[in-house]
Design a protein around this nucleic acid. Sequence first.
DNA 1: TGTGAGTCAATACG
DNA 2: CGTATTGACTCACA
Length: 379
Amino acid sequence: SSRGHSQPDLSQLQPCPRAPSLDPPYGEPSGGESQPGTPLLGPITGLSIQETIAMSPELDTYVLTKKVKEVLTDNNLGQRLFGESILGLTQGSVSDLLARPKPWQKLSLKGREPFVRMQFWLQDPQKVEKLMDMKRLEKKAYLKRRHSSLSDSRSVDGGLAGPDFLQSASPQHQRRTQLYQKKVRVVLGPEEKEALKRAYQEKPYPSPKTIEELASQLNLKTSTVINWFHNYRSRIRRELFIEEIQAAGSAAAAKAGEGDSCDGTESDSTMEGHHGRHRGAPENQDMEVRVEAGVSDGSPAQRNCTTSGSVGPVSSSNSNLFSLPEAGLSLSALSSHTSTPARNPRDNTLRRKKAANLDNIIHRLEKAAGKEDPSEWEF
DNA sequence: TGTGAGTCAATACG
DNA sequence: CGTATTGACTCACA
């Protein structure tokens, strides 16, 4: 069951450059920024991306990304090319997305867009050819530009507009090269990260005052500390989601052990054991909250691999697109996790402690979101 | 105003 | 080169 059905012809999906978000890089408010330019997905459907995504059936982001990675590597296609021409995202974003996809239910409408695009792309019989063509064109344009850098530059790479679409890639950033400073990247040292993580453990949501203290103690800008907390919380949260996926996958696989294809290739994403990259610094950054894939009892268990044939919609029997009862979605999502992973009968010490701490955080968030309990955000 | 979500883009890494 | 990591930024929302 479940397989190509009523879906809105998702045959051809254009690359469509990022929709609205147009952000001038640091400084320069200038704005084109036209607004509701809701791009269309296809010439015929006439549906906006948002609409199409809204009616998209549930997708298994894990299986989906796995397939995409497979196709890309099998054909020597890079993330940059794929991201810029198919998803309208940069290489770094694609890497992140493919390596750590959040489960569909936890994604916002916007967050689902890349996955819907991946889905469409996989359905396109000519996906590989198109991308290869793009690659060729890019190389050609590159060589040309390089060879005769005499003439002006820009000029949209001459005939890049070959096959069909593409080249839209990133709208904004172009060659504002010399106009802006390079933007120096702040790189926190191991000790600083250590300190911040410690502070996080104690207070995931530090008060402005605490932030100031940390900033001065570590000799960092206040904004850097703030950003660090934002990012850390966000990334920790994502790790938990991923654990859920893997746990669920393992469970599912264990439950039904059919001779499913599952070409073993790639057991990937399993958390890395740590290694000390970081320039010869005192790395003992084990305090990562990562809990490893070995979920609870430790049985390795097979990897997801669920449906083999179709990467397609995992549509749960009744693809109830919306119906999702209530908006409790986000909250219930969080709470659901609260009881899932950490539920470990045996005391797993460290791991458990960390999970508990995180659960606490989430707990408080739910509380704060649901009711007005300004009691104290202290711990 | 602060937060989560999504990204960008510099750069570390291989 | 291609990929992974991550500080900073935009935006919607309450």
